[in-house]
Amino acid sequence: MPPSRLSPHRPMHFRLGRMLGKGAYGAVHEALLESGASVAVKRVDLGRCARGPGKDSRLAFNVESEVLRNLPSHPHVVAFLASEAPRGGQGEALIWMECVSGGSVSGVLKTYGAMREDTAGRFAAHVLSGLVFLHSNRVVHRDVKPANLLVTVCGTVKIGDFGSACVVDGEGGKAKGIAGTPNYMAPEIFRMVNNPTGGEAQGDGTYDCKADVWSLGMTLIEMLTAHPPYSELSNPFAVMFHIARHPTPPLPPSASSRALAFLARCLERCPEARSSSLDLCTDPFLPPQLGRLNRDAGWQLPPPTLATRATRCGGGRSWRRTGGSIPPPPPPPPNHP
């Protein structure tokens, strides 16, 4: 659970703890507040990013912090607390977020293997609830996959890692550009002139929020099998080629008819015919509470008070946040899945 509202008159100290994840240009650590609450801190070395191909990571940090800063709170999206980027664009940039201590769905699959359908359906419902919220705020996540879905110790799934996200213009707005992880990317992303799969141009490479729905379908396949789609292919370009040119990904042979029908709606190759995240909420494969939650607009919550910038405290591994306040998490809607 995110930390409670903090006093705007008292500095907040962070002490970094264990590493939760690491990439080429930064890492995510657990951190301890002076209140005793735990948060997650994402640290990105902007100087290192600027010296090489990590310029994309630098841009991703800016996009991620802005997307999260402007989103209201939601029970199935990791809560944003604060961010800081050093002046001049050099040094270490940070994003403070809710710490989800149960690990990722990917970690759950590695530890326990393939999920039962009822568990996978519940997890998919949580992700779908978060996607409805994001899409209603014109955010396309663009990297929905088990590694970016975090699980609380109580079994609540939250969407995290917004480094590939973008905000589209208005209702029906389009995104452009290849972003995400190949095994989970929708085929319309590759339909562009001079596309990397080597196939013919089939479109202008634009796509909308339904690309996340395709990724949810691929994620559900992994939850039911414990293997990513196209895991037998080690070359990412071969994966892109298969997604762009083949009718459908391999489906779990032991899946129920309800699961297969849900997957068919997610993995419709034509984005115009693919179900939206909101349309999927009443699918019989999912717990019935999800449809009620979204019909009642339980995901429309008031925006939080924005947290102000944070500053390094001393020369050690402690941090201080000055000014502003961090909003408390909203109470979950009744009977949410």
Rank of each mutant, 00 (worst) to 15 (best):
P252S: 14
M1A: 11
S277K: 12
L71C: 02
G17H: 08
A37K: 09
L286W: 00
I159R: 09
E30I: 09
P2K: 06
S254I: 10
R258L: 05
Y112A: 10
V100K: 11
A79Y: 05
S275N: 15
L32M: 12
P182M: 00
P229N: 06
G203W: 07
R309A: 13
E30R: 15
E188C: 03
H13Y: 06
F190I: 04
R58I: 11
L306E: 07
P329I: 00
P187E: 11
S35D: 11
A24W: 03
N183T: 00
T305W: 03
G203S: 11
P249S: 15
W299M: 05
K55Q: 11
A120W: 06
C313G: 10
Y184G: 06
L220Y: 09
V132Q: 13
G199P: 07
Y112D: 09
L46Y: 14
A310Y: 10
A297M: 08
G103R: 09
G91W: 12
H336P: 02
A125M: 11
N62P: 01
P3C: 05
V144N: 13
P330E: 02
H29F: 04
C154P: 00
G199F: 07
L94Y: 15
G155L: 05
P327C: 03
Y184A: 02
A211E: 11
G36I: 05
P327M: 01
E117Q: 12
G314R: 02
V132Y: 12
W319R: 09
T111S: 08
H126R: 12
D283W: 00
Y112C: 09
Y207K: 05
R43E: 15
S104D: 14
T305M: 08
P333C: 07
A114K: 13
S106G: 11
G180D: 13
R191F: 05
L293H: 02
P8V: 03
G180E: 10
P328L: 06
V168Q: 02
P304Y: 01
A273K: 14
Q90D: 15
K42D: 09
G89R: 15
I221Q: 07
W319F: 06
R58M: 15
S254T: 12
S106C: 04
R258I: 00
S129R: 14
Y184N: 07
T111F: 01
F133G: 01
A31N: 10
L306F: 08
P302S: 00
V140Y: 09
N335L: 04
Q289C: 01
G47I: 08
Q300L: 10
L32Q: 14
D283M: 01
H141Y: 07
